[in-house]
């Protein structure tokens, strides 16, 4: 199954190069999602299905939606309809679509011969869960504190400074 890995690696590297070289943020975001999909498939072929699912749900799902949400927030002032028309331009989605079709074909091939792929070393969610809530319990608690700090920090930083907007001196 090594050919699968190298093809996935090529897709991931190409998509990442396009992420850092693109000038349009939405294009770059689409390519980053493709790169994350490729890495998730690599996790799957490495025998880590739980992490592959989390990569899709949290990275490609939640975090990228957060990015898109903020970009939409910042673009509010511009003419919205013209922007919508630009987004329907095929040049925007043809590149990511081709790379995603490659990934889809690989997923089909991978799923059709799963038993051959894993090499008998699949580490499933059960083992990960036992580890997370056993030896790594302190790490999990610290991660929850970190997420709370991130929540408070994001709220504080994104808050509107009303004093400054009224023209008074900030305290």
């Amino acid at each position: 199954m090594s050919a699968t890995f190298y093809l996935l690696a090529a897709v991931a590297v190409i998509a990442t190069v396009l992420v850092i070289t693109h000038t349009n943020a939405v294009h770059a975001l689409l390519y980053l999602i493709v790169s994350l999909l490729a890495v998730a498939l690599i996790f799957f072929t490495l025998g880590a299905p739980f992490v592959a699912a989390l990569e899709l749900i949290i990275y490609a799902g939640a975090i990228m939606v957060l990015f898109i949400f903020v970009m939409m927030l910042l673009n509010l002032g511009q003419a919205a309809t013209q922007q919508e028309r630009r987004w329907l331009d095929p040049r925007l989605w043809v590149g990511p679509a081709i790379l995603t079709i490659v990934l889809l074909a690989e997923l089909a091939v991978t799923l059709s011969n799963t038993n051959r792929l894993a090499g008998g070393s699949v580490v499933g969610p059960k083992q990960v869960g036992i580890l997370m809530f056993g030896p790594y319990l302190l790490g999990v608690e610290l991660a929850s504190i970190l997420l709370l700090a991130g929540l408070v920090g994001a709220y504080h930083l994104a808050r509107r400074d009303t004093r400054r907007e009224r023209g008074e001196k900030p305290a």
Binding site: L54, E55, L66, V70, A149, G150, G153, L157
Partner: peptide, 19 residues
């Protein structure tokens, strides 16, 4: 998983800074 949690916290603060 721990890196994932860290990335989520980092990106929320980073996007707040962007705003």
């Amino acid at each position: 998983l721990l890196i994932l949690a860290m990335a989520a916290a980092e990106v929320s603060v980073g996007l707040a800074l962007l705003i």
